[in-house]
């Protein structure tokens, strides 16, 4: 298990830090403001179409989307790796083009691909990253980051000798080497085992506790469900939804009531036609789908009508749709 990032170590770095009132007032303030950003690649492919997005200070924001939706392009634009065709981005009030130094100093990026300097030592490559971001050498901080990520005993090893999981952690260490206020994690758990995923989630939480704003892209819906404060869904270059995770689950979440029938039904009685019902398992299972947000769920009248129709059930259970179901339905319905 990796160590938790020491929140005390991060206090006092960056605007609004160390002042509780400022932290409270700044909690909802956008630390990244993406305005009308579009990106058309040279081949003509439009990767992003008029994207507007605000990331709040101190939150964990999960950007979900299928392959090729534009997640990495959006991150790359904010970080300065790709030029936007139109629009602008402010990072803590600094324009990413006009004031790129101030903007980039605040950001740490963990890329999706395991791109590393194979022949360098762990210590050298992490120290290099710190220098690159304009920070003077601080061996104590590098030591702490490497220890937090369980890489300390590998500090003198060449990067090429590390396992895939270690390389992933190394990329995180490089991104954290300059003490960023904003951390981008582009599919941080792609291809990593369950333990590493859980450790990474733990790390992300402790970074958030230390005041770091985290933007992660992921294919794993459970990851977003587990970690995120807010969720954005991007599809075909457009942000189709940005919502507080809990509200999203409540708003778009459907519940299913499944009744195990005593005797199988061949077809539904006409009296039940008004309900969203489905028969399954050879007529022995009746599923009623209802909206959690509606005033009345309709469960009581349904049960009354079933009783009137002489349909007897021996067991029942309710289930709620997961973020994955919501995501799939959103992306499917996207234009």
């Amino acid at each position: 298990m990796w160590r938790r990032i020491n929140s005390a170590a991060r206090k006092g770095t960056g605007p609004g830090r160390g002042d509780p009132s400022a932290e409270r007032s700044g909690a909802r303030q956008a630390v990244i403001a993406v305005s009308n950003v579009s990106k058309a690649y040279a081949a003509g492919f439009k990767a992003l179409k008029n994207v507007n997005l605000d990331i709040r200070r101190g939150e964990i924001f999960a950007l979900l989307g299928p392959n090729g939706a534009g997640k990495t392009t959006l991150i790359s634009i904010v970080c300065g790796i790709v030029n936007a065709t139109e629009g602008n981005v402010l990072v803590d009030g600094h324009d990413i083009v006009a004031d790129y130094r101030a903007a980039r100093q605040l950001i740490g990026l963990v890329p999706q691909e395991l791109t590393t300097d194979a022949f360098e030592s762990v210590w050298a490559t992490v120290s290099f990253s710190r220098g690159l971001f304009g920070k003077s050498a601080n061996p104590a901080h590098i030591e702490k980051v490497l220890k937090d990520l369980s890489l300390w005993d590998k500090k003198d090893s060449k990067v090429m000798t590390l396992s895939g999981g270690m390389k992933r952690r190394l990329l995180i260490a490089k991104a954290l080497s300059h003490e960023p206020n904003i951390l981008f994690l582009d599919e941080p758990t792609a291809g990593v085992d369950v333990n590493l995923r859980r450790d990474m989630w733990q790390l992300v939480r402790s970074l958030r506790e230390a005041g770091v704003t985290i933007i992660l892209t992921t294919h794993y819906i459970d990851e977003a469900e587990e970690m995120a404060d807010r969720i954005g869904v991007i599809s075909k270059g457009e942000i189709i939804l940005v919502e507080d995770k809990i509200e999203l689950m409540q708003k778009l979440g459907k519940k299913h009531l499944t009744l195990q029938l005593q005797h199988p039904l061949v077809e539904l009685p006409a009296a039940l036609a008004a309900y969203d019902l489905q028969l399954a398992n050879g007529g022995t299972e009746l599923t009623y789908t209802y909206d959690t947000q509606s005033e009345r769920t309709g469960i009581v009248p349904l049960l009354d009508r079933l009783s009137d129709a002489g349909i007897v059930f021996k067991d029942l259970q309710t289930t709620q749709s997961s973020l994955e179901d919501i995501f799939v339905s959103l992306v499917k319905d996207a234009p």
Binding site: C79, G80, I81, Y100, R101, A102, A103, R104, Q105, I107, L109, P111, E113, T115, T116, D117, A118, S129, L132, F133, G134, K174
Partner: peptide
């Protein structure tokens, strides 16, 4: 070639 150029491009260097 290796892709590590991402770091250089995203760093606050002119």
């Amino acid at each position: 070639f290796t892709g590590t150029i991402y770091e250089l491009l995203s760093a606050p260097v002119s």
